[in-house]
């Protein structure tokens, strides 16, 4: 487990009532998505109802953390503190094996080697005492 960072300058997520279960899962290193008991739809990010059928009967599904790069970009320009020191960083969309698509950075490899279709695996890093942030690493 990575220790909580000091001097972390990127935005730290604001957690609320709807999202707190997701972030509790992240603290344990678990990637949680919602599954609708009404229509079976799986969704990310969490909502108070199923965005497809509007059922409020939702359960949490623990994902394997395995996924495929759907698309990505190497960001060469962003003036925001925390990011401007790390250019180029990889901003990516990952299709989870369980279905939903999530946004995250791909870390732990050369940015230039990231490709669409590449297999990646979830990793969680502490960025504050409360928040453990999802990232992906090449498999």
């Amino acid at each position: 487990m990575t220790t909580p960072s000091t001097g972390y300058r990127k935005p730290i997520p604001y957690v609320d009532e709807v999202s707190k279960t997701y972030w509790k899962g992240a603290q344990r290193g678990e990637l949680l998505v919602q599954q609708c008991k009404g229509c079976g739809q799986r969704q990310f990010y969490p909502r108070p109802l199923c965005a497809k059928c509007w059922s409020t009967d939702l359960e949490w599904l623990r994902c394997s953390g395995q996924g495929t790069v759907h698309s990505f970009t190497l960001t060469y320009q962003n003036g925001q503190p925390g990011f401007r020191e790390e250019l180029p960083y990889v901003f990516a969309l990952i299709d989870l094996d369980e279905g939903p698509r999530v946004t995250a950075n791909i870390v732990g490899g050369k940015p230039e080697q990231v490709k669409i279709g590449m297999r990646v695996s979830a990793a969680f890093d502490w960025i504050s005492p409360e928040i453990r942030l999802l990232r992906f690493r090449p498999v």
């Binding site: 990127k10 935005p11 730290i12 997520p13 604001y14 957690v15 609320d16 709807v18 999202s19 990310f44 990010y45 698309s71 990505f72 970009t73 960001t75 320009q77 962003n78 003036g79 925001q80 925390g82 990011f83 960083y89 901003f91 969309l93 999530v102 946004t103 995250a104 950075n105 960025i127 942030l133």
Partner: peptide
Amino acid sequence: TGGRAQGDYWDQFEVPYGPTTVGSYAL
């Protein structure tokens, strides 16, 4: 290329990763 601040609910699942407007179109 300015980067985004958190404002709305859904930002907690995107803004921590450094989205930019050009980056979205780049995807």
